[in-house]
């Protein structure tokens, strides 16, 4: 599914430029290169509606890092450097200590929160309790952008709403919040 839609993804010109895969020594050029990679990753993830990146897996098979036409693969060091840059920009969050799995946030939790809150207020869910599940997989949200959103992203988005006093998360037994609920406030 992902590979099918990725064929329609418009790769930037740099993607087919071999030096793009080698970390540049000139610092100016390197900064531009990393910047271009960051944008590419965010655009690719946004286009394919992906949220989680497994570095080992991606370096092995994802067309994002593996250019089979050029026969180039991004090195793990360079990829880590780029991902850490995304992290410092607030667009990425590591999920493990080994820095292998990460959450790519092409929309920040606050932005997702705003979208969810907008939906809740448009559909009269203010002062009503919803399950987190029905937000990302319910019948009422099928046409919403956050439908199919990664659970952890939904929780993060709801946390920003909670910090603003616009919602209260109701946690249940599951630590991953898969059985949590939320109450929206007007």
């Amino acid at each position: 599914m992902a590979s099918q839609s990725s064929s329609e993804f418009e790769w930037p010109v740099l993607y087919n430029y071999p030096p793009f895969y080698t970390l540049q020594t000139n610092l100016d050029t390197r900064a531009k290169q990393i910047d271009a990679w960051c944008n590419l990753i965010l655009n690719y993830f946004k286009y394919n509606k992906l949220y989680v990146l497994d570095l080992t897996e991606a370096l092995a098979s994802s067309p994002l890092f593996v250019n089979s036409q050029l026969n180039r693969i991004l090195s793990r060091e360079t990829a880590s450097l780029i991902l850490n840059t995304l992290d410092s920009r607030g667009n990425l969050e590591w999920q493990d200590k080994e820095k292998d799995r990460c959450l790519v946030m092409w929309r920040t939790p606050k932005e997702w929160g705003a979208l969810i809150y907008q939906w809740a207020s448009d559909n009269a869910f203010i002062n009503t309790v919803c399950t987190v599940y029905e937000l990302h997989s319910g019948d009422d949200t099928i046409n919403e952008e956050f439908y199919g959103l990664e659970l952890i992203m939904v929780v993060k988005a709801l946390q920003t709403l909670q910090n603003d006093g616009k919602a209260q998360i109701i946690q249940r037994s599951n630590p991953d919040m898969s059985d949590a609920g939320v109450k929206f406030f007007g």
């Binding site: 009503t128 309790v129 919803c130 399950t131 599940y133 029905e134 909670q162 910090n163 603003d164 006093g165 919602a167 209260q168 109701i170 249940r172 059985d179 609920g181 109450k183 406030f185």
Partner: peptide, 19 residues
């Protein structure tokens, strides 16, 4: 802001049902 006190027992019951 913590609005946990705005979640009533009924809200909890509704959540149970919805889960």
């Amino acid at each position: 802001i913590n609005r946990a006190h705005d979640v009533s027992q009924q809200d909890q019951a509704v959540l149970d049902l919805k889960l």
